[in-house]
């Protein structure tokens, strides 16, 4: 099942590296991602579309991500409500 994870992280070098390492270790692939900095440039908000085989791993993964020093928040959200962002990403890709 596809899941959408929205993370707010500090806008720092290496933050994504640490984040994606947590997914790699659990053999979770990122199927799409969109990342933008906040208006004050202090943080980034990232949306990741990923597939998780076991639903009970959702909560554990969220907690592991949340405890990272540079992660300000992490939340799962309903994939249906985020179709728009997927489409935006696709249209961006098509431009290239």
């Amino acid at each position: 099942m596809h899941e959408i994870l929205i993370c707010k992280m500090k806008n720092k070098v290496g933050v994504l590296n640490r984040f994606t390492g947590l997914l790699t270790r659990r053999n979770i692939n990122i199927e799409s991602a969109s990342i933008n900095s906040t208006p004050d440039n202090k943080a980034v908000v990232a949306k990741f579309k990923i597939r998780i085989a076991e639903s009970h791993e959702r909560e554990h993964l969220k907690r592991v991500i949340s405890k990272q020093i540079d992660v300000l928040s992490a939340e799962w959200c309903d994939p249906e409500k985020n179709k728009e962002s997927d489409h935006t990403l696709l249209s961006d890709i098509e431009k290239y």
């Binding site: 290496g14 590296n17 540079d70």
Partner: peptide
Amino acid sequence: ILSMTAPITKQNYQ
């Protein structure tokens, strides 16, 4: 070393 130690540290800095 930052990439190498990311999964085995609470935090790392350069």
